[in-house]
Design a protein around this nucleic acid. Structure first.
Length: 580
DNA sequence: GCCGTTTTCGGCCCGACTGTTTTCAGTCG
């Protein structure tokens, strides 16, 4: 953890402990805000802290400036150490359990001494929690559900969270003088949204030297195993990392074997057997002839697939879901790439809860080489997100018009909104207001607990509105922290197909929603996709990278994705529904 | 805690939902 992360983490933990103590809510918010500022400040905040020059940053006052300075200078904070000593360390984990906030956590801690998830589970099951005033049967059952969800996801990581760590280690391995080739295999390479570990493959003439360096990285918390060509470590964040060091000749086979998935590997090995070969992670060997090998003619994965009579299969497709058959018949999709994207929808500005202004977002989109940018701030019911009143929305439309008028013709801002779908399926603005917009992303931000039937018809009602262009984050899931709400996805897909309504891939790595497992079905029905970063600041445009991976896992091609359309074609697509 | 200022302290986002309780507190977004 670097210094900036450490400071942000300490401030966040102070907020949690102050909540437990029942401190003033605004004081708590000040620490949370402070933590976010440290995390995201675009400048050398450590230097500012050391120079005692933080006071000009809005949100950092005298007290926080002093504490951040102490942390930057010494790596510690006396105030936090004192606060921390009042509670057991394990209590932070209780804040990962949904339906349990600071007040209830404090009651459980005070009355039953519950300070960890195992204790919480024990006291829920014994019935003691249910006897406390304010806790009833349903509360206990909800807490147990949350614990069980939390347990099921132990030792799992969101790919988006792991990506910077993974790329750092890869860079470290690639810069090693004995490394010839290096890459990350496993589920990370397949573009999975949730990971259990990272698999690194290196080709080298000196495997011991690579493994020595790998196991001595400064982020290693534990060496699980260490041999001459293979090692496993656990990082200080709990993530397990495996390394295989092989020769250049073995590299494509090792890479292929450790990219998996298991089902994919089983299938292609069977295919190899049928052709008279044995395939393992070291080579492709003619059966019954251990001395000879055809491996010499195979230098890449593409060569390997070709030797088996297949076209190269993109790693994202290797889930044993028809990709081998499609490859054999030369019917693999020509997958979308990041370079195919021409614009993006579902982006926020400071008008609602974004951190960058309309102008800053526009410049950032231009810098990325995009041809258009859709702005969709929150609607009025999302009070917590500073949703736009009708008047503010109309004013934003004018502001965008004037920016467009002053901008060259090869870039365009589209006026949209992320409109709340209310509990009864109606939308948050009247139709005549929505009709003034270029497009509308309709999303759910409230009433998550409806039955599947209610939720499905609620969303379908929105889909049937002629002003709704696309549905945002369809299931509302937050990976590893909140389950999707009950909704019949196939019915929604059908409704989108018959109402010419698109579905987004929300590319925020915490969401990645709609899930890649549904996209082939959507594609078959003719439903188009929009890959959206749900950007709340300019850096979030990078989320598009994760969205593209999900689209690839869903077998999507540029033709399936509306924001691959060039500027001169996108507008008619956005208007298509109203003109039907 | 921070901010803005009528410079010494009041305002700081707030409504929906849920479960529990019987009028409301806690959680969530």
């Amino acid at each position: 953890m670097d210094k900036r992360d450490l400071i942000a983490d300490v401030l966040k933990k102070i907020a949690i402990l102050l909540e437990l103590k029942g401190e003033n809510a605004f004081k708590i918010r000040a620490y949370r805000t402070g933590s976010e500022i440290v995390e995201t400040y675009s400048g050398d905040i450590i230097k500012l802290a050391l120079d005692d020059d933080l006071k000009n940053i809005k949100g950092i006052g005298t007290a926080l400036a002093q504490k951040i300075h102490e942390l930057a200078a010494t790596g510690k904070l006396e105030y936090f150490e004192n606060l921390k000593s009042e509670f057991p360390q394990s209590i932070f984990n209780l804040f990962n359990i949904s339906n349990l906030g600071p007040k209830k956590t404090k009651i459980l801690y005070d009355q039953l001494g519950i300070d960890s998830i195992p204790k919480l589970k024990q006291f829920c099951e014994s019935g003691e929690v249910g006897e406390i005033s304010g806790f009833g049967k349903k509360s206990v059952s909800k807490i147990l559900d949350s614990i069980s969800f939390h347990e099921d996801n132990a030792n799992t990581f969101r790919s988006g969270d792991v990506a910077p760590i993974a790329e750092n280690i890869l860079e470290f391995l690639r810069s090693h003088p004995d490394t010839e080739q290096a890459t990350i295999a496993g589920s990370y390479r397949r573009g999975k949204e949730i990971l259990h570990d990272l698999d690194f493959i290196v080709s080298t003439k000196s495997p011991e030297s690579i493994i020595h360096s790998f196991t001595n990285m400064n982020t290693v918390a534990e060496i699980i195993s260490k041999g001459s060509t293979k090692s496993s470590i656990r990082l200080d964040n709990g993530l397990q990392c495996d390394l295989r060091a092989v020769s250049n000749a073995e590299y494509p086979f090792t890479l292929n074997y450790f990219t998996g998935s298991k089902g994919h590997n089983i299938q292609i090995r069977a295919l190899a057997l049928n052709k008279g070969y044995k395939l393992n992670e070291y080579g492709l060997i003619p059966k019954g002839d251990t001395d000879s090998s055809i491996s010499d003619s195979i230098h890449t994965e593409s060569d390997l697939y070709e030797a088996l009579g297949l076209k190269m299969i993109h790693p994202c497709l290797r889930e044993n879901s028809g990709e081998i058959e499609a490859s054999a018949e030369n019917k693999l999709p020509k997958l979308v790439t990041l370079e195919n994207l021409r614009g993006t929808f579902h982006n926020h500005t400071t008008a609602s809860d974004g951190k960058n202004t309309l102008e800053e977002m526009t410049e950032a989109a231009k810098d990325l080489g995009l041809q258009y940018l859709g702005i969709s701030d929150h609607s009025k019911s999302s009070v917590q997100a500073n949703g736009l009143s009708t008047e503010r929305l109309l004013a934003q439309i004018k502001e965008i018009q004037s920016l467009n008028n002053s901008s060259p013709n090869d870039f365009r801002i589209f006026s949209g909104v992320e409109c709340d779908i209310l509990k009864d399926g109606t939308l948050d603005y009247d139709d005549e207001i929505l009709a003034k917009l270029d497009y509308c992303v309709a999303s759910i931000h409230s009433s998550f607990s409806l039955t599947e039937k209610e939720m499905t018809s609620r969303v379908i009602k929105a889909i049937e509105n002629p002003n709704v262009t696309m549905i945002g984050h369809l299931t509302g899931r937050l990976l590893l922290s909140r389950k999707p709400y009950s909704i019949n996805v196939p019915k929604v897909i059908d409704a989108c197909a018959s109402n010419h309504t698109h579905i987004e891939i929300n590319a925020n790595p915490r969401r990645l929603d709609m899930d890649w497992r549904w996209w082939r079905q959507a594609k078959d029905k003719g439903v188009k996709c929009s890959i959206n970063p749900d950007a709340h600041r300019i850096e979030h445009f990078q989320f598009l990278h994760f969205g593209v991976k999900i689209a690839q896992k869903g077998w999507l091609e540029p033709n399936d994705i509306i924001n691959c359309l060039p500027l001169n074609e996108i507008e008619s697509t956005l208007n298509k529904k109203q003109n039907l």
